[in-house]
């Protein structure tokens, strides 16, 4: 069993407009096998939390800690975090021109598993994983995310989740921009990984649409850079019905 622990996390970003604190004391603990959901208004800092866990260089941790089984994550490089078992399905996956999906995935799988899969096994594995997510086999030869539609990018993220089998995955609005069928396919993909491994999942979402497909036992409300309410699935339903109004201006939990 593994534990991802986020404690009193303060994060700032430097932009042309100056330095700004975006996360203002986040506390969150996720254990293997658990599924958590974070809901919060636009601009409240959800993606910032996701990027900070993954180690994006734009975000600086000024206070608090992130640990994986007690080991400091903040001092790890981005690739070290991934190899340690952290995964982020991005809200806006970027294009990487010149790098084919198949080459990218094989390089990534090699890095994460510590050895290159045998070519024959790998081709089989990739084919099966793509088929399971209804990804056209032709995508293997396309460049990473280049010209992918929004939905195709999200599917490509979950394809990676499936191949990399991380210990903890943060899914940043993986549901947004997906049509009804695609949402089902993507949710099934996530659920397959949840069933096959004891992955811990953090879903960032705006609606209960995804939560109906991927049930989360823990729901957290995120406002203005911190978690202001914790609960179960009923909290998500309440937000869907009545919005965030009652949480605005609330003090942080914990």
């Amino acid at each position: 069993m593994s534990i991802l622990n986020i404690h009193d996390l303060h994060v700032q970003v430097e932009s042309d407009a100056g330095v700004r604190e975006i996360l203002r004391g986040v506390d969150l603990t996720i254990e293997s096998g658990q599924t958590h959901a974070i809901m919060g208004p636009n601009g409240s800092g959800k993606s910032t939390l996701a990027y900070t866990i993954a180690g994006h260089p734009k975000y600086t941790v000024t206070q608090g800690s992130i640990t994986l089984d007690g080991v400091d994550v903040v001092s790890m490089t981005v690739d070290e975090r991934a190899r340690a078992g952290l995964f982020l399905a991005m809200q806006y996956p970027v294009e990487v021109p010149g790098v084919s999906v198949s080459n990218f995935l094989r390089t990534s799988v090699t890095a994460i598993r510590g050895e290159a899969p045998k070519l024959r096994d790998w081709l089989k594995e990739l084919k099966a994983a793509m088929a399971a997510l209804s990804v056209d086999p032709k995508f293997a030869e396309r460049n990473v995310n280049e010209g992918f539609s929004g939905g195709e990018r999200k599917r490509h993220e979950i394809l990676q989740l499936d191949l990399l089998r991380p210990r903890f995955a943060v899914l940043d609005e993986t549901d947004s921009g997906l049509d009804v069928d695609a949402l089902k396919v993507v949710a099934e993909g996530v659920n397959r990984v949840r069933e096959a491994t004891d992955i811990g999942v953090l879903l960032i979402t705006h609606t209960t649409r995804l939560l109906r497909e991927i049930p989360a036992e823990f729901v957290h409300v995120f406002v203005d850079g911190r978690i202001v309410a914790d609960g179960g699935p009923e909290l998500a339903d309440e937000i869907e019905a009545s919005g965030y109004e009652r949480f605005l201006g609330a003090p942080a939990t914990s």
Partner: peptide, 21 residues
């Protein structure tokens, strides 16, 4: 960042991009 977030070290990432190019 994207390539690194998938476990690929920066040197390999650059190689991958240039080789593919």
């Amino acid at each position: 960042f994207y390539l690194q977030a998938r476990g690929i070290d920066p040197e390999t990432a650059r190689r991958l991009v240039v080789r593919g190019f």
